[in-house]
């Protein structure tokens, strides 16, 4: 009994300490007003006069978010970038996962290693490496010039294209692995059965392979979409001044404007936007667990 209570308490404690408490703090800051102080907002928590403290909180910052069109444009632009890069990751990741699952058994663990290998180096270093590749004097342009495909260097770095490249590159393993897992589990005789019943190879792929890897596709898409939406490092390093992403706006509010309350409001709204896909993702995982029994 005791043991079970402890076991259940551990994840709840984890959730409380690492998610709920910080969230409440951020939420409280978002209801405060900015001030020239340390910390740079008022009111600070006062237990002695809790009533006045509460009365000083308001939703002003949220109203501000709707008034300046920078914010909703940034949200929309982030959604668009996250959505499109998820599609691109899927378009690249699915064939890779499929090829891995079709490979002879002895190659699979090696291929799996190769997919995970980039995680062994720091994410930042890898993004900086992309700067070196994509810049006007970078490897890509040098190669294309050398090969005679182009005569003037392409401007890729500091554009949205570079952001897409960065996001797709970074999150590709998150797409490949869950899809590979579902394809790997699939019984090859199902494809034979489909063919036996008159399906062509391609027909069998769409009618059997794709539906059976649905859970992997959904899991992969969420694993890419959710972090990509709030992505900050990639747009600020690879993107240009015109790349609008909410993660970057958030950073600028916090550190350039030192407007913690507005930044917190941006974060809370971002979380609310993310809650829908996160819940959908959870449901998918649950369905998968049930069907897998």
């Amino acid at each position: 009994m005791m043991r079970r209570a402890v076991l259940i308490a551990v994840p709840y404690f984890w959730l409380m300490a690492l998610f709920l408490v910080p969230f409440i703090i951020v939420f409280k800051v978002s209801l405060s007003d900015t001030a020239l102080a340390i910390p740079p907002y008022v009111p600070t928590l006062e237990w002695r006069d809790f009533r006045t403290f509460l009365s000083q909180l308001d939703f002003e910052n949220y109203i501000w978010l709707t008034q300046d069109d920078l914010y909703w444009k940034a949200y929309l632009s982030s959604l668009k970038i996250a959505f499109l890069s998820t599609l691109m990751t899927l378009a690249i990741g699915y064939p890779v996962a499929y090829a891995m699952a079709c490979c002879p058994e002895k190659w699979r663990s090696t291929l799996m290693m190769l997919v995970i290998l980039p995680f062994w180096t720091s994410f930042l270093i890898r993004v900086y490496a992309w700067m070196g590749i994509l810049s006007n004097e970078g490897f890509l342009n040098q190669f294309l010039l050398w090969a005679g495909i182009i005569s003037t260097p392409l401007t890729i770095l500091n554009t949205n294209t570079a952001v897409y490249i960065g996001i797709v590159y970074t999150y590709l393993p998150f797409m490949i692995l869950p899809i590979y897992a579902t394809l790997d589990r699939m019984d090859a005789s199902l494809l034979e059965a489909a063919e036996d019943l008159g399906c062509s190879r391609i027909g069998a792929f769409w009618l059997v392979t794709v539906p059976l890897s649905r859970n992997g596709i959904i899991a992969g898409c969420f694993l890419v979409f959710i972090p990509a939406l709030g992505e900050f490092v990639i747009p600020s390093l690879l993107g240009g001044s015109r790349t609008l992403m909410i993660g970057k706006v958030l950073w600028e509010e916090f550190f350039n404007n030192r407007d913690w309350p507005v930044a917190s409001a941006v974060a809370v709204v971002l979380l609310l936007i993310l809650i829908i896909p996160i819940m959908l993702f959870q449901r998918n995982q649950q369905n998968q667990a049930e069907a897998g029994r």
């Binding site: 019984d187 005789s189 199902l190 489909a194 063919e195 036996d196 019943l197």
Partner: peptide, 27 residues
């Protein structure tokens, strides 16, 4: 296989797990 007027019942059944019994038979 898909061009032969031959159908096979597999030793492992090979039923499509994502389809209902009805849809399996109708496949």
């Amino acid at each position: 296989a898909n061009k032969r007027a031959v159908n096979m019942m597999f030793q492992s059944y090979a039923l499509f797990p994502h389809l209902t019994v009805w849809d399996n038979i109708a496949f």
